[in-house]
């Protein structure tokens, strides 16, 4: 192993150790700007904290049939998939899937999800991905309300 050290690296990565997370692939803000990432982060975190459900957002290609792939993703979206809500957006296929687990589904009926999806798709059709997701999360968390354990 007599390769030269990687001089572009921003950390202590050598020829025999892995690169740091920041050196892998593209930059963090490749898809969304930092401002948009901050909005997404706040919306996901606040929705999850207010409702006690776990909202996650997947942005990328979905295998066909997209519903099956979204449900597979939902199954591994967290340690407690029953209370997880997955929003899977595939801008290339122009599909958005909302998947709720059994526990989350009691507080988020399919009709409420369909309403949130409707508001999301109308934003997506205007090219506003982040705004649509933030509005959809707001609707979903408003519908779900606070869990009994968080009521005072």
């Amino acid at each position: 192993m007599t390769r030269a050290l990687e001089v572009d690296s921003h950390d202590t990565a050598t020829a025999t150790t892995g690169a740091a997370r920041t050196d892998e692939g593209g930059s963090v803000d490749e898809v969304f700007s930092y401002r948009e990432l901050a909005r997404l982060d706040e919306a996901l975190t606040m929705s999850s904290r207010e409702t006690g459900l776990r909202f996650t957002l997947y942005v990328g290609e979905l295998r066909k049939p997209t519903r099956t792939h979204a449900e597979e993703l939902h199954a591994r979206s967290g340690p407690d998939a029953s209370d997880a809500v997955l929003i899977a957006v595939s801008p290339g296929q122009r599909v958005v899937e909302v998947v709720t687990g059994a526990g989350a589904g009691r507080r988020l009926p399919d009709r409420a999800c369909a309403l949130a999806v409707l508001s999301m798709t109308s934003s997506f059709a205007n090219g506003d991905l982040v705004g649509g997701v933030v509005n959809g999360l707001r609707q979903l968390s408003d519908q779900a309300g606070h869990p009994a354990s968080l009521r005072h």
Partner: peptide, 16 residues
């Protein structure tokens, strides 16, 4: 994660 089944799944689907 797969050890705990999520039960019947709900949700919605939309296209644009």
């Amino acid at each position: 994660h797969a050890a705990r089944p999520a039960g019947p799944l709900g949700g919605a689907r939309g296209t644009w």
